[in-house]
């Protein structure tokens, strides 16, 4: 899980062009949107594409998306639970 979280942080930095940030700057428990990293709706789309491209996982509803994209931890949990072996 630790490895996956670190990898996800690196992928998020690359996908969202957060070039001023390092993986250590992202708190895996903190919300990604509004209060935490301050991401917005376009970032949500980018993260949805990232999950599908890199892990082959789809988010089916907006409600589901809110829970999955809440934090790096919630994304990692979703990947671990659903990743095809």
């Amino acid at each position: 899980m630790e490895q996956l979280i670190q990898k996800l942080k690196e992928e998020i930095i690359e996908a969202l062009n957060l070039s001023e940030m390092k993986p250590a700057d992202i708190d895996e428990k903190a919300p990604l949107f509004v209060d935490g990293l301050g991401l917005d709706s376009i970032d949500a789309l980018e993260l949805t594409v990232l999950l599908e491209k890199k892990y082959g996982l789809k988010i089916n509803t907006a409600e589901e998306g809110k829970k999955i994209l809440h934090s790096v931890n919630s994304m990692a949990e979703f990947i671990t639970a659903n990743k095809k072996s």
């Binding site: 996908a15 062009n17 376009i42 789309l45 980018e46 594409v49 599908e52 491209k53």
Partner: peptide, 9 residues
């Protein structure tokens, strides 16, 4: 498929 939204926008 799987197009990133940012370059399009």
């Amino acid at each position: 498929k799987l197009l990133n939204p940012t370059p399009f926008i």
